[in-house]
Protein backbone atom coordinates (compact mmCIF):
# COMPACT_ATOMS: atom_id res chain seq x y z
CA UNK A 1 0.00 0.00 0.00
CA UNK A 2 1.22 3.46 -0.67
CA UNK A 3 0.39 6.68 1.12
CA UNK A 4 -2.03 8.77 -0.95
CA UNK A 5 -2.76 11.49 1.58
CA UNK A 6 -0.74 12.68 4.56
CA UNK A 7 -0.22 15.77 6.65
CA UNK A 8 1.93 18.31 4.76
CA UNK A 9 5.46 18.86 6.04
CA UNK A 10 5.03 22.64 6.34
CA UNK A 11 2.10 22.22 8.69
CA UNK A 12 3.74 21.95 12.10
CA UNK A 13 2.84 18.70 13.89
CA UNK A 14 0.87 20.43 16.63
CA UNK A 15 -2.83 20.63 17.48
CA UNK A 16 -4.46 23.87 16.33
CA UNK A 17 -6.59 26.26 18.37
CA UNK A 18 -9.45 26.37 15.89
CA UNK A 19 -12.93 25.19 16.85
CA UNK A 20 -14.20 21.81 15.61
CA UNK A 21 -15.18 22.06 11.95
CA UNK A 22 -13.49 25.41 11.36
CA UNK A 23 -12.56 26.22 7.78
CA UNK A 24 -9.34 28.01 8.67
CA UNK A 25 -7.56 24.80 9.45
CA UNK A 26 -8.62 23.27 6.12
CA UNK A 27 -7.26 26.30 4.26
CA UNK A 28 -4.06 26.22 6.32
CA UNK A 29 -3.59 22.62 5.24
CA UNK A 30 -4.18 23.42 1.57
CA UNK A 31 -1.64 26.24 1.68
CA UNK A 32 0.91 23.99 3.36
CA UNK A 33 0.32 21.25 0.80
CA UNK A 34 1.03 23.77 -1.95
CA UNK A 35 4.13 25.16 -0.22
CA UNK A 36 5.43 21.56 -0.09
CA UNK A 37 4.39 20.60 -3.60
CA UNK A 38 5.59 23.81 -5.24
CA UNK A 39 8.76 23.82 -3.14
CA UNK A 40 8.11 27.38 -1.93
CA UNK A 41 9.23 27.20 1.71
CA UNK A 42 12.52 28.96 1.04
CA UNK A 43 10.95 31.98 -0.66
CA UNK A 44 7.46 32.41 0.73
CA UNK A 45 6.37 34.91 3.40
CA UNK A 46 2.91 34.97 4.92
CA UNK A 47 1.18 37.96 6.49
CA UNK A 48 -1.72 36.68 8.60
CA UNK A 49 -4.48 38.98 9.91
CA UNK A 50 -5.72 40.11 13.25
CA UNK A 51 -8.51 37.63 13.85
CA UNK A 52 -8.73 33.89 14.47
CA UNK A 53 -5.89 33.24 12.04
CA UNK A 54 -3.51 35.61 13.84
CA UNK A 55 -1.95 32.46 15.30
CA UNK A 56 -1.21 30.98 11.86
CA UNK A 57 2.50 31.26 12.70
CA UNK A 58 2.00 28.50 15.24
CA UNK A 59 1.16 26.15 12.37
CA UNK A 60 3.01 27.38 9.28
CA UNK A 61 6.59 26.21 9.13
CA UNK A 62 7.71 29.09 6.93
CA UNK A 63 8.34 32.82 7.48
CA UNK A 64 5.39 34.73 8.94
CA UNK A 65 4.99 38.42 9.82
CA UNK A 66 2.17 39.64 12.02
CA UNK A 67 0.03 42.55 10.87
CA UNK A 68 -2.14 45.15 12.53
CA UNK A 69 -5.82 44.65 11.78
CA UNK A 70 -6.46 45.25 8.09
CA UNK A 71 -2.95 46.29 7.12
CA UNK A 72 -1.94 43.02 5.49
CA UNK A 73 -1.84 44.26 1.90
CA UNK A 74 0.23 47.34 2.86
CA UNK A 75 2.75 45.22 4.75
CA UNK A 76 2.80 42.73 1.88
CA UNK A 77 3.49 45.65 -0.48
CA UNK A 78 6.49 46.64 1.66
CA UNK A 79 7.79 43.07 1.58
CA UNK A 80 7.25 42.62 -2.14
CA UNK A 81 8.80 45.94 -3.13
CA UNK A 82 11.80 45.18 -0.93
CA UNK A 83 12.09 41.56 -2.13
CA UNK A 84 10.49 41.25 -5.57
CA UNK A 85 11.71 37.67 -6.01
CA UNK A 86 9.90 36.35 -2.95
CA UNK A 87 6.35 35.01 -2.85
CA UNK A 88 4.28 37.17 -0.54
CA UNK A 89 0.75 36.40 0.53
CA UNK A 90 -1.73 37.82 2.97
CA UNK A 91 -4.19 35.60 4.78
CA UNK A 92 -7.15 37.70 5.81
CA UNK A 93 -10.59 37.39 7.30
CA UNK A 94 -13.65 39.34 6.21
CA UNK A 95 -13.26 42.10 8.78
CA UNK A 96 -9.57 42.44 8.04
CA UNK A 97 -10.01 42.43 4.28
CA UNK A 98 -13.32 44.14 3.69
CA UNK A 99 -13.91 46.46 6.66
CA UNK A 100 -10.89 47.93 8.42
CA UNK A 101 -8.50 47.03 5.60
CA UNK A 102 -10.65 47.94 2.60
CA UNK A 103 -8.40 50.80 1.51
CA UNK A 104 -5.18 48.81 1.83
CA UNK A 105 -6.72 45.89 -0.05
CA UNK A 106 -8.26 47.86 -2.91
CA UNK A 107 -5.20 49.99 -3.50
CA UNK A 108 -2.80 47.07 -3.43
CA UNK A 109 -5.02 45.34 -6.00
CA UNK A 110 -5.29 48.50 -8.06
CA UNK A 111 -1.52 48.98 -8.11
CA UNK A 112 -1.28 45.45 -9.38
CA UNK A 113 0.96 44.49 -6.48
CA UNK A 114 2.43 41.10 -7.25
CA UNK A 115 1.08 39.57 -4.09
CA UNK A 116 -1.63 37.03 -3.30
CA UNK A 117 -4.47 37.39 -0.83
CA UNK A 118 -6.30 34.43 0.64
CA UNK A 119 -9.54 35.95 1.85
CA UNK A 120 -11.47 33.75 4.26
CA UNK A 121 -15.12 34.80 4.29
CA UNK A 122 -17.23 33.29 7.04
CA UNK A 123 -19.65 36.21 7.31
CA UNK A 124 -18.89 36.83 10.96
CA UNK A 125 -16.16 38.12 13.30
CA UNK A 126 -14.85 34.92 14.82
CA UNK A 127 -12.04 35.87 17.20
CA UNK A 128 -13.96 38.64 18.93
CA UNK A 129 -16.96 36.41 19.54
CA UNK A 130 -19.38 36.52 16.64
CA UNK A 131 -20.06 40.15 15.82
CA UNK A 132 -21.37 41.39 12.48
CA UNK A 133 -18.93 41.39 9.57
CA UNK A 134 -19.07 43.44 6.37
CA UNK A 135 -19.98 40.16 4.68
CA UNK A 136 -22.69 39.13 7.19
CA UNK A 137 -25.73 38.14 5.17
CA UNK A 138 -29.06 39.92 5.19
CA UNK A 139 -31.12 38.59 8.06
CA UNK A 140 -28.14 36.85 9.67
CA UNK A 141 -28.08 37.19 13.43
CA UNK A 142 -24.82 38.06 15.10
CA UNK A 143 -24.02 39.41 18.55
CA UNK A 144 -24.12 42.97 17.18
CA UNK A 145 -26.99 42.40 14.78
CA UNK A 146 -29.25 40.50 17.18
CA UNK A 147 -32.34 41.21 15.07
CA UNK A 148 -30.65 39.96 11.95
CA UNK A 149 -28.77 42.18 9.51
CA UNK A 150 -31.18 44.82 8.22
CA UNK A 151 -30.18 46.61 5.05
CA UNK A 152 -31.73 49.87 6.21
CA UNK A 153 -29.59 49.83 9.36
CA UNK A 154 -26.45 47.86 8.59
CA UNK A 155 -26.36 48.04 4.81
CA UNK A 156 -25.60 45.22 2.45
CA UNK A 157 -23.10 42.36 2.42
CA UNK A 158 -19.96 43.79 0.85
CA UNK A 159 -18.73 41.89 -2.18
CA UNK A 160 -15.16 43.08 -2.20
CA UNK A 161 -14.06 40.29 -4.50
CA UNK A 162 -16.44 41.43 -7.25
CA UNK A 163 -15.20 44.96 -6.64
CA UNK A 164 -11.58 43.94 -7.00
CA UNK A 165 -12.33 42.00 -10.18
CA UNK A 166 -13.14 45.34 -11.83
CA UNK A 167 -9.63 46.69 -11.19
CA UNK A 168 -7.07 46.49 -13.99
CA UNK A 169 -4.31 45.66 -11.49
CA UNK A 170 -6.02 42.44 -10.44
CA UNK A 171 -4.85 39.52 -12.59
CA UNK A 172 -6.66 36.59 -11.02
CA UNK A 173 -9.78 36.85 -8.88
CA UNK A 174 -11.79 33.84 -7.83
CA UNK A 175 -14.28 32.75 -5.18
CA UNK A 176 -14.33 29.18 -3.94
CA UNK A 177 -16.03 27.26 -1.17
CA UNK A 178 -15.12 24.56 1.34
CA UNK A 179 -18.58 22.98 1.25
CA UNK A 180 -17.44 19.51 0.14
CA UNK A 181 -14.27 17.61 -0.81
CA UNK A 182 -14.63 18.48 -4.51
CA UNK A 183 -14.90 22.17 -3.73
CA UNK A 184 -11.98 21.94 -1.32
CA UNK A 185 -9.91 20.49 -4.17
CA UNK A 186 -11.07 23.37 -6.39
CA UNK A 187 -10.00 25.79 -3.66
CA UNK A 188 -6.53 24.27 -3.63
CA UNK A 189 -6.30 24.59 -7.41
CA UNK A 190 -7.36 28.23 -7.18
CA UNK A 191 -4.74 29.02 -4.53
CA UNK A 192 -2.12 27.24 -6.63
CA UNK A 193 -3.05 29.32 -9.63
CA UNK A 194 -2.98 32.51 -7.54
CA UNK A 195 0.62 31.77 -6.53
CA UNK A 196 1.52 30.99 -10.14
CA UNK A 197 -0.01 34.29 -11.25
CA UNK A 198 2.14 36.07 -8.69
CA UNK A 199 5.26 34.24 -9.79
CA UNK A 200 4.51 35.17 -13.39
CA UNK A 201 4.45 38.81 -12.28
CA UNK A 202 1.00 39.33 -13.76
CA UNK A 203 -0.46 41.37 -10.90
CA UNK A 204 -2.59 40.96 -7.84
CA UNK A 205 -4.26 37.62 -7.21
CA UNK A 206 -7.13 36.99 -4.83
CA UNK A 207 -8.82 33.82 -3.69
CA UNK A 208 -11.93 34.34 -1.60
CA UNK A 209 -12.80 31.17 0.25
CA UNK A 210 -16.29 30.73 1.69
CA UNK A 211 -15.62 29.07 4.99
CA UNK A 212 -17.75 27.81 7.87
CA UNK A 213 -17.72 29.16 11.41
CA UNK A 214 -19.85 26.61 13.27
CA UNK A 215 -19.21 28.20 16.66
CA UNK A 216 -20.43 31.68 15.81
CA UNK A 217 -23.12 30.47 13.46
CA UNK A 218 -24.23 28.43 16.47
CA UNK A 219 -24.68 25.22 14.51
CA UNK A 220 -22.92 21.86 14.34
CA UNK A 221 -20.03 21.46 11.89
CA UNK A 222 -22.26 19.29 9.66
CA UNK A 223 -24.98 21.93 9.63
CA UNK A 224 -22.40 24.64 9.00
CA UNK A 225 -21.14 22.93 5.85
CA UNK A 226 -24.71 22.50 4.65
CA UNK A 227 -25.41 26.19 5.35
CA UNK A 228 -22.29 27.10 3.43
CA UNK A 229 -23.59 25.41 0.30
CA UNK A 230 -27.25 26.25 0.64
CA UNK A 231 -27.08 29.84 1.87
CA UNK A 232 -23.66 31.40 1.53
CA UNK A 233 -23.00 30.23 -1.99
CA UNK A 234 -26.34 31.81 -3.02
CA UNK A 235 -25.27 35.20 -1.72
CA UNK A 236 -21.67 34.76 -2.80
CA UNK A 237 -21.61 32.77 -6.06
CA UNK A 238 -18.43 30.76 -6.50
CA UNK A 239 -16.36 30.87 -9.67
CA UNK A 240 -13.60 32.70 -11.48
CA UNK A 241 -14.28 36.42 -11.80
CA UNK A 242 -11.12 37.39 -13.53
CA UNK A 243 -8.30 35.44 -15.09
CA UNK A 244 -5.64 37.16 -17.12
CA UNK A 245 -4.48 33.84 -18.55
CA UNK A 246 -7.93 33.21 -20.02
CA UNK A 247 -7.77 36.59 -21.75
CA UNK A 248 -4.41 35.75 -23.27
CA UNK A 249 -5.81 32.52 -24.71
CA UNK A 250 -8.54 34.33 -26.64
Amino acid sequence: MKIVYTRPKCLKPVPNHYCPGCGHSIIHRLICELVDEMNMRGRIICIPPAGCAVLAYNYFDFDVCESAHGRGCAIATGFKRAQPDRIIFTYQGDGDMAAIGTAETLHAANRGEKITSIFVNNAVYGMTGGQMAPTTMIGQKTTTSPYGRRTEVEGYPLKITELIATLPGAAYVVRTSLANPAKIRETKKAIKKAFEVQMAGAGYSLVEVLSPCPTNWKVSPREAFAYLEEKMEKEYPIGVMKDYTAKKDK
Partner: peptide, 20 residues
Protein backbone atom coordinates in the same frame (compact mmCIF):
# COMPACT_ATOMS: atom_id res chain seq x y z
CA UNK B 1 -11.27 2.03 -0.55
CA UNK B 2 -8.72 4.75 0.02
CA UNK B 3 -10.68 7.54 -1.71
CA UNK B 4 -9.19 10.09 0.75
CA UNK B 5 -12.32 12.25 0.87
CA UNK B 6 -12.11 12.13 4.67
CA UNK B 7 -8.55 13.45 4.60
CA UNK B 8 -9.45 16.20 2.15
CA UNK B 9 -12.20 17.28 4.51
CA UNK B 10 -10.43 16.86 7.86
CA UNK B 11 -9.78 20.30 9.39
CA UNK B 12 -7.16 18.85 11.70
CA UNK B 13 -5.08 17.16 8.99
CA UNK B 14 -5.35 14.15 11.26
CA UNK B 15 -5.97 11.45 8.65
CA UNK B 16 -3.39 9.62 6.61
CA UNK B 17 -4.68 7.51 3.74
CA UNK B 18 -3.04 4.48 2.10
CA UNK B 19 -4.26 2.69 -0.98
CA UNK B 20 -3.12 -0.32 -2.91
Amino acid sequence: KGCALCAVMCPEAAIEVCRG
